[in-house]
Design a protein around this nucleic acid. Structure first.
Length: 275
DNA sequence: ATGGCTGACGCTGTCAGA
């Protein structure tokens, strides 16, 4: 089972890239961020024609998340409200369309587009911090249920210095601050693991290259898109990789897709082994 | 080399992203 995340920077601008990629790579579940369109304009039929189901939460111009799945999509949650209902911030934090989750193949797939934060002095950085705190409350509900969880998306955070091409240029800058790194770590509750780092423990792996300064040509990137798995699935993961091919195209998204391969559900024999 | 691209909106500029 292949599960992927991709910030496409406008689904309507990127539809041909996404379609070609899905056909070529045979991904089962694709989570998109920055779709940048209202639900009524999302090109749903492109995906249903390929045999996928689609769940979307979009808005005009900014943000927007979607789940595209070959397997049935059940029990969809949009925004924070349904899960974090007692927090007054959760309503405000749900106005920007940045989180959608669903049950697919008995895995809780949680697709997030974490706010960028702009700069550490800005209001937007406060918003990012509140958003991450709310994500922690949201995740706690599923973690306490003992649900298999796949949390994935654009986190707009480099978890470690080795996730930045030139870390000395970005010390305590947005996406690299101790504050947001700790907020993300706390939100994960010690229960979700960054699966890419299991297979690629060294540095020099990027998922985002700035459009400016020929960052792609010079391979100056950041690793800000991640997939986090709960212990149920982490033991079933067969590989995790960044697919750089779509980033090399003409008029690309500034992000590349990140893919995880999981053997799920675990086979009977594997269950016996764990018993 | 990180203020120097890209997309949306809607109009020839402005906002936001990261």
């Amino acid at each position: 089972m292949l599960i992927a995340t991709w910030n496409v920077n406008s689904i309507r601008s990127r539809i041909e890239h996404v379609k070609e990629w899905l056909i070529a790579k045979e991904v089962d579940v694709l989570c998109l961020q920055e779709t940048k369109t209202e639900d009524q304009f999302f090109p749903v039929e492109v995906f249903t024609n390929l045999g996928y189901e689609v769940s979307i939460s979009g808005q005009k111009s900014y943000n927007g998340v979607a789940i595209i799945s070959k397997l049935p999509i059940n029990d969809v949650n949009i925004g924070f409200n349904e899960i974090v209902s007692n927090d007054p911030d959760s309503t405000t934090l749900s106005e920007q369309k940045r989180i959608i989750s669903a049950s697919i193949n008995d895995i809780r797939i949680i697709n997030v587009y974490v706010p960028n934060g702009s700069s550490v002095q800005s209001e937007k950085f406060m918003y990012k911090q509140k958003w991450l705190e709310n994500l922690g409350i949201y995740l706690k509900k599923y973690i306490s249920n003992d649900s298999p969880i796949c949390l994935l998306g654009d986190f707009n955070i480099a978890p470690e210095d080795k996730d930045i091409h030139t870390p000395k240029n970005f010390i305590e800058k947005v996406m690299a601050t101790t504050k947001e790194r700790n907020l993300l770590k706390n939100a994960l509750g010690g229960k979700l693991e960054d699966v890419f780092r299991i297979f690629e423990p060294e540095g020099n792996n990027w998922t985002w290259w700035d459009y400016r300064h020929s960052a792609w040509e010079r391979n100056k990137g950041w690793r800000i898109d991640h997939i986090y798995l709960s212990e149920h699935i982490i033991s079933c993961s067969q590989g995790c990789w960044i697919d750089r091919e779509p980033r090399s195209k003409v008029k690309p998204s500034d992000h590349a897709p990140l893919v995880v391969d999981v053997s799920w559900p675990p086979s009977e024999n594997e269950n016996e082994f764990f018993l």
